[in-house]
Design a protein around this nucleic acid. Structure first.
Lengths: 248, 248
DNA sequence: CGTAATTGTAAAAATATTGTCAAATGGGAG
DNA sequence: CTCCCATTTGACAATATTTTTACAATTACG
């Protein structure tokens, strides 16, 4: 099986339906007043309550005063660098998601982000929607922690998402990267009808947006690999005119 | 990959079922006639109703005349720059999503998009599919109707709109896509008399506008599937000369 | 009552969606 | 550069749904 490190992170960009969290407090750390103002507006119109800070030291203090649900953090900050803010906060509260804003040069390597403890990042000319999506994804991730259990079993299938391994009757089934991502998305959204469109958006992403027939083909593969009788699927059900639905 | 001119035809073949909102009007602001024409075709073949404008001033006026569901906006415009169009519109109607078309140089700075208040952006040259995907994503986000409770029960019927599942006496009843949509509309508008025309407008959409008899047939199906005694309906009532009325 | 308009109903006809496979594409490893 | 394999596309068949159509039943109303 291919290396899934990169593709998986893409799947995190989910904008999830009907999941807007009111009452969520966001701490925005950004020194450019224009950007700060714009960010505040962005999140406030989405129903978040916003706290802003302009430098690193104040950010940490503000965080300690009242723990926000998530943090949007510019890396280039006066007084205390974004890196250090990240580290300090993660040391105290490792579960609060931090989304880093950065120029491409700031994070040439993902290793850096891991070291920092950041949960996600958005690079330079970013779309507001994308930032929102990532914050939401991060929030969702923490708010329902046991969302994706590491191991899921149903029928003759057992999947270990941590190991990225799927077994059928105890024998390893090899899924390709895309198949695995699709599978995981279905498991995370069990019992819900998912349109091809949503799949393309959430699993494939924007940059490569294939035709809807591609989705069907991947469903076909998943059925062939995971269903007892692929021609009359039990788990990967089709909902005519709507999309697909996964049931355990 | 996609340079706008040719690949449009490719995206045309993309069948796009159920998901697309009927009656969605898109305002396209683009001064290059060739691109404008291509964009119009792109969105029209996907079932959107399209309004086009070639300069900034007209765009704002057109917007005020009739508010579209979303706006696709080129940044480089005569008469009034895309930036200003964006600002003006966002000042009046912050919820209408704006997707910006831009050369990479236009958005080299992350400040820009945020200040503008744009929701998303696509850089030229862009793939038609990507643009479509982003517009759809934006629409999906705003047009979310939180008014439908996820689960509704009445008589022997229980409906889970999230799972798109309807049960009668605990047994799953299979509704087709159109039946389900019709059913949902009735539930959302319980106790109110609904004319066939309204149903055709709201549930079917103007792009495929069948005869009013089609409505009757769907009511028939709903009664057969959901009523205890379909020939003397309790929930899906006929209001002679007017239309139908759903009561729980 | 009687008639015209409206609605109920079921089957046929027309469309639309999905399943499936083979071939084309494209990216990465060697 | 070439080969390999995942991915995507495109075609076509197989299904499923939507719409039309025709006619019977019902209702409104003089």
């Amino acid at each position: 099986m291919g290396n899934l490190a990169t593709p998986l992170s893409a799947a995190r960009t989910m904008t999830h339906p009907a999941e807007s969290k009111p009452n969520s407090r966001i701490l925005i750390v950004e020194d450019d007043p224009a950007v700060q103002k714009a960010l505040r507006r962005l999140f406030e119109t989405e129903g978040y309550s916003v706290e802003t800070q302009s430098d690193g030291r104040s950010a940490v203090e503000s965080f300690q005063a009242a723990t926000p649900a998530a943090i949007v953090l510019d890396l280039r900050l006066p007084r205390l660098s974004g890196r250090d803010v990240c580290k300090e906060i993660k040391a105290v509260a490792p579960t609060v998601p931090i989304i880093v804003l950065s120029a491409t040069t700031d994070v040439s390597d993902k290793v850096l982000l891991l070291e920092l403890g950041a949960d996600d990042y958005v690079t330079k000319p970013f779309s507001p929607r994308e930032l929102l999506a990532r914050v939401r994804a991060a929030l969702r991730h923490t708010s329902r922690t046991p969302e994706t259990p590491s191991v899921v079993t149903f029928g003759a299938i057992s999947a270990d998402f941590k190991k990225m391994e799927v077994k059928r009757d105890g024998k390893v089934v090899i899924l390709t990267a895309q198949e695995f991502k699709t599978f995981q998305f279905f498991v995370q959204n069990a019992d819900r009808v998912i349109s091809r469109d949503e799949l393309l958006n959430e699993v494939w992403g924007y940059q490569n947006y294939p035709s809807t027939r591609t989705v069907d083909n991947h469903i076909l593969k998943l059925r062939q690999k995971l269903e007892n009788d692929p021609s009359s699927p039990v788990h990967f059900r089709t909902v005519h005119g709507m999309g697909y639905k996964f049931v355990r």
